[in-house]
Amino acid sequence: MEYNYPLRYDWSTDEMIQVVSFFEAVEKAYESSVERNQLMDAYRNFKKVVPSMAEEKTLFKEFEQVSGYGSYPVVKAAKAGKDGDRIQGVQR
């Protein structure tokens, strides 16, 4: 994909990597599939960087605007799933 991930320049390199890893997992859910546990681990790491719900919503919206992929439906599907499930074919 040819777009920029929504990042904040006051984040450390490690924090940026955590956020990008989460958004890459979201992409996988749309483009093929991603293991639920992998997605939830990426989301937990994302939440360490972005603990605020308001900032999370802002970043989700920014990511959807540039990619077309909604993060919320993917996270919702993962939370509803069980260990060992794969998240795939999420409806936009």
Rank of each mutant, 00 (worst) to 15 (best):
E35H: 13
G81V: 03
K76M: 11
E27C: 09
R8F: 03
E2P: 11
D83N: 14
K76R: 13
L59P: 00
E15F: 04
E15V: 00
S33I: 05
E15G: 10
R86E: 12
A54K: 14
R44N: 13
T58V: 05
P6K: 08
S71P: 02
M1K: 15
S12W: 06
R44Y: 13
K48Q: 10
T58Y: 02
S33C: 03
Q18Y: 15
F63I: 05
L39K: 07
V19Y: 09
W11P: 04
Y3G: 04
G68P: 02
F63A: 00
N4M: 05
V20D: 12
A80W: 03
R36H: 03
R36M: 02
D85V: 00
K48M: 05
W11Y: 13
E55L: 14
M53F: 06
Y43K: 05
Y9A: 09
K48L: 12
K57G: 10
G89C: 04
A77M: 06
E24C: 08
V34M: 07
A80D: 03
F23W: 11
E15A: 15
G84D: 06
M16D: 08
V75K: 02
P6W: 00
Q18S: 12
R36P: 02
A42F: 14
V19A: 01
M1E: 13
Q38R: 15
E27S: 13
D85E: 05
T58C: 00
M53A: 08
M53E: 10
T13S: 07
D85T: 05
R86Y: 14
K48P: 00
S71M: 02
S33P: 04
Y9E: 13
V74R: 04
W11S: 08
Y3F: 11
A29P: 02
S33G: 07
P6V: 09
D14Y: 10
Q38H: 12
G68E: 11
K76Q: 15
E27K: 11
Q91W: 01
V90M: 06
Q88D: 04
Q65K: 15
G70Y: 05
V50K: 05
G68Q: 09
S32M: 04
E31F: 02
Q91N: 15
V19N: 09
V66T: 08
V66A: 10
K47I: 08
Y43R: 06
R92W: 08
Y5D: 07
D14P: 01
G68N: 04
A25H: 05
Y72W: 10
D14E: 10
I87Q: 14
Q91C: 03
